[in-house]
Design a binder for these strands. Structure first.
Lengths: 133, 133
DNA sequence: AATTACACTCTCCTTTGGGTAAGTATAAAT
DNA sequence: ATTTATACTTACCCAAAGGAGAGTGTAATT
């Protein structure tokens, strides 16, 4: 057993550790690149089909799109409506919970848009500081 | 080349695609489990040492702690101050930018705390619906 | 008869994430 | 002389993420 694991037990916590773990699990699942990108795409475009989301989320592969949508459906963030026609037609949309998450995430998007220049600046400074000496 | 990739180029975009890509890259990096957990730990505890963060972030390994902290320093989210004593003493703290990100993330934490019960409910419903027929 | 459309699924493969364990440096405490 | 403390790094390993590409089913189109 590592020193870290031993030491960790020493700290007390004011909040219910069971809920804390649950929340961290949710954060761990929801704080996913593709989840967030799909969330935004659906928030801005309402009901969208599979291929529509693929167009709205640059760089996502079919595999990841399918997988992420399934997880989001499982978590109750999106609804999935199959129209049994040929060729197939499947509509995706945010649920109320998905919309509320999207709203909660709005601040992060704004932060990213507001700070991307400063981040690049920080990176350059880091490289200059640590790369030279 | 896949159909998806071909189709994607067709869609025009109102916003600067270069900035869009930058923002999505930032989201992709920042939307990381450990980053978010460390962010919260530092936000709530101010200046903390390496081993202190390890105690505050349950389940993180030394390797991931080191790696994530380096990335956060690179992105300008945390400051790292080395006190050249023996045994070593290194202080970590959020920068202004780190604090602002933490603030932006606050909404997501609150969402997770508010909705974890509903998520578990949705999962049960999903399994009942898709597992039976 | 061949092609296209759509929303997948499946297989193969490479990359990354992430855990464990051991090693490092050195001064102070035992 | 050995242990302890701290903040790492390195090496080894496995599992998960994720990309590329091919295949599927069927009806309408060409």
């Amino acid at each position: 057993m590592s020193q870290l694991l031993k030491a960790r037990e020493a700290y007390p916590s004011e909040i219910d550790p069971a809920i804390e773990r649950l929340v961290q699990d949710i954060i761990g699942k929801v704080a996913d690149k593709w989840t967030m990108l799909i969330l935004e795409a659906l928030e801005e475009n309402g009901t969208v089909r599979f291929s529509g989301i693929a167009k709205l989320v640059p760089g996502i592969s079919q595999k990841m799109l399918t997988k992420t949508l399934r997880q989001m459906e499982y978590d109750g963030l999106v609804s999935r409506v199959i129209h049994p026609v040929i060729p197939p037609h499947v509509d995706y949309a945010l649920t109320d919970m998905g919309r509320s998450l999207s709203e909660a995430f709005c601040g992060v998007w704004q932060w990213a848009e507001a700070h991307h220049a400063r981040i690049e600046q920080a990176r350059a400074a880091f490289l200059a500081k640590s790369g030279k000496p």
